[in-house]
């Protein structure tokens, strides 16, 4: 077997998607916090978006399955909070993917100090901010519900955290 590199691993993990947002890779989501290689033994560090995220086990399994499909047998995956996830960890590419999927990408986390930042989220369809926050809690822990007064349609935002 050819020697694999860290870059190979990251490239493969680009194909492992968030189970709830199939356009967003785990790498772009920012939940892969470290990859280390030691003689074809691969160690992955992951961190959940929200502590109670029920998709974490599935993501872990998907990462393991992907690496196995590439012929890697010695895999360890550790989930920790050493480098906690924040919405700022979503890559620019990831934010674009979210928007195309119809989910408003999160504004920078440091701006979220009060409800105001959530009150007028930019609509992913028209980019306008003539919108209202309907609920800071949405269909999953990481999404809030908004309404665009111009498009007259509801939309969801990936929550800043």
């Amino acid at each position: 077997m050819q020697t694999i590199t860290k870059e190979d691993i990251y490239t493969w993990l680009e194909d492992v998607k968030d189970p709830e947002i199939p356009v967003l890779s785990l790498v772009d989501l920012g939940v892969i916090t470290n990859v280390t290689l030691d003689n074809n033994k691969v160690h992955i560090e992951m961190t959940p978006t929200f502590v109670g995220c029920p998709a974490m086990d599935m993501m872990k399994q998907d990462v393991s399955d992907m690496l196995r499909s590439k012929g890697i047998e010695d895999i360890s995956i550790n989930i920790s909070f050493k480098e906690p996830w924040t919405s700022d960890k979503i890559s620019e590419k990831g934010k674009q993917a979210l928007k195309q999927f119809g989910l408003a990408p999160p504004p920078p986390g440091n701006l979220f100090s009060d409800i105001d930042i959530l009150e007028h989220a930019a609509c992913p369809r028209c980019n306008g901010t003539n919108t209202d926050l309907k609920n800071p809690f949405g269909p999953t822990l990481c999404r809030s519900i908004h309404y665009c007064n111009d498009c007259r349609e509801a939309f969801e935002q990936f929550k800043p955290l």
Partner: peptide, 9 residues
């Protein structure tokens, strides 16, 4: 939804 989400958290 809010109380259910907070429960999950």
């Amino acid at each position: 939804i809010a109380f259910s989400s907070m429960a999950q958290d």
